[in-house]
Nucleic acid binder design. Sequence first.
DNA 1: GCGACAG
DNA 2: ATCTTGTCGC
Length: 228
Amino acid sequence: MTSGGIRYEPPADVAEALRVQEELRSRVDLVGPGPTAPTTVAGLDVAYAESGDRLAAAVTVLDAATLAVVDEAVVVGRPAFRYVPGLFAFREMPALLAALDRLTVRPELLVCDGHGLAHPRRFGLACHLGLVTGLPAIGVGKTPLVGEWAEPGPERGAWTPLRDGGEVVGRVLRTRDEVRPVFVSVGHRMSLANAADRVLALTPRYRLPETTRTADRLCRQALAAALA
DNA sequence: GCGACAG
DNA sequence: ATCTTGTCGC
C-alpha cells in the first residue's frame, strides 16, 4: 500500500478543482533534493478507450540499477473529470492512486507522465501525486504546457531552462542524440537538477524513461483486455 | 476578442 | 489521450 489508503474525492466542477489546486500548491516541497541513488523507481501512465469513458491506470516499479520491473499494478476505471488543460490531474488521480494502493513495494520515486511545476499554477500532475502520496515525484512531459526555452544542444544530456513568468519551472532535456527533448519538472520533494539526473539514468536507450514505457505497455494491454 | 492548451 | 498510411532505418 503506497498511498496509505488515501481517500481522494474528485472535484464537482472546474471552480472547485481550481480551489483545490490553490489550497494544495503551497504544501509542495520544492527543496528536495530527493534520492540521488534510489533503489526503486515507479512509472505511472494511463490509457484511454476511444469512447473516452473508460481508462486503465498502471504503475510499474523498476529496480533503479537494472531497470528490471520488480512490481506492477493496474486498474481499469472511468475518468474522474473531463479533460481541461491545467486540471489534467483530476482526471487520472483516482485510478492512479488505486493502482499505487495495489503495489507490494513502496517506490522511492514517482516518475509521472505529465508536468509538475511546469504548470500555469505550478501544480501539475506530478506535484499532485507527490503531495498526496508523500513520495518524491518528478514530471516528464512529451510536449510543453507553459513556458519558453531555447533549443538544447543535439547530444544526449544537453538541456536548457524552461522559464515561465520569469521563473525557471523546469528543464528541456535531450535524452537521446538528435531526438526531440522532453520537459522535466519537479513534482514534490525533489530538486530540478536531481530530477534531470534521474531522467537521464532512466533513458539509456529511448527518448522516454523506462518507467513510463513499461507503465504505458501495461495500461494499454490491460485496457485492451478489459474491452475485449 | 483570439489563440493556446500536459494527457 | 486516440485515430491514421506510408516511410525511413537498424
